[in-house]
């Protein structure tokens, strides 16, 4: 059963009033979001806005306390990460999307649960990222940060995901590598994959995103085309309306 069986008009991922909490502390206060197939949706926001938490909820690592997570028209609340992965959802987590003690090839092998052969995965990967081909028998943990992130991307793409979630892809990487990675992201979206990107670092991602939303203190405070959102960014990061809320959402006296 692939998530791609969904009707073309339904968004690949839809969140309706999703709330999530760590223990008693709620950090996502009712988020609504749509990610259509074949597009890049960017979520921007400062540190601690609940962006990564939201991704954890989508991929099943953290249960939603309220609301619906809908993938390809099906409500998937309560599904485990491996079930979602097998259904075509793929997350590259923040900063550590690889298995450092496996070789590059073995990392790619982890993507073979979809039924594709290792040979075809390797062929396509090394075509897209030739540098990984040179290092196929190297332990992934010994490569540079950019190469590791490439590998994470490559492994994610090898699963032929219908929905790809990227958490802080640019973190700690040189700008030129970030651009290279985002070029790959845009290319993948053109192939029909729904992509949700979460970033603090806004410039590059706004260049490739089709839609964007700003998240502050666990809520989406603005959304729209990237061009329109750019000017709201400063307010979101540096204060303004969104920046003066206490954790329970009430304005501070």
């Amino acid at each position: 059963m692939s998530a791609r069986a969904g009707h073309p008009q339904t968004p690949m991922l839809e969140l309706r009033g999703v709330r999530a909490a760590y223990g008693r502390i709620e950090v996502v206060h009712g988020v609504d979001l749509e990610v259509p197939a074949g597009s890049v949706t960017a979520i921007l926001g400062p540190n601690g806005a609940g962006k990564s938490t939201m991704l954890k909820v989508v991929c099943g690592l953290l249960p939603a306390t309220d609301g619906d997570v809908i993938v390809a028209g099906r409500r998937v609340n309560g599904a485990t990460p491996d079930q979602l992965a097998r259904a075509g959802l793929c997350l590259i987590p923040e900063g550590k999307g690889i298995f450092p003690n496996l070789t590059v090839r073995e990392n790619l092998r982890m993507a073979t649960y979809t039924g594709r052969s290792l040979a075809s995965i390797e062929e396509r990967t090394y075509q897209r990222f030739p540098r990984l081909g040179e290092r196929r028998n190297q332990l992934a943990g010994t490569m540079s940060g950019g190469e590791q992130q490439m590998l994470a991307m490559a492994r994610a793409l090898a699963t032929d995901p219908a929905l790809l979630l990227l958490d802080e892809l640019s973190m700690g990487l040189a700008p030129i590598i970030v651009e290279e990675l985002y070029a790959a992201v845009a290319e993948v979206a053109r192939e029909g994959v729904a992509i949700l990107v979460v970033e603090q670092f806004a410039q590059t991602v706004l260049g490739v995103a089709d839609r964007a939303a700003i998240m502050v203190h666990g809520e989406v405070v603005a959304s729209g085309p990237p061009g329109e959102l750019a000017r709201d960014l400063a307010a979101a990061y540096l204060g303004g309306d969104g920046g003066t809320r206490s954790p329970d959402g009430a304005a501070i006296r």
Binding site: D82, R86, C90, A111
Partner: peptide, 26 residues
């Protein structure tokens, strides 16, 4: 450990358990 997916998944789970789950391993 080196030539079956079950074995590689075992080693992957040592490196990063949640990530292994995200990759469809159990």
């Amino acid at each position: 450990l080196y030539h079956t997916r079950a074995g590689i998944a075992m080693r992957a789970a040592v490196d990063d358990r949640p990530l292994a789950a995200l990759n469809g391993a159990r």
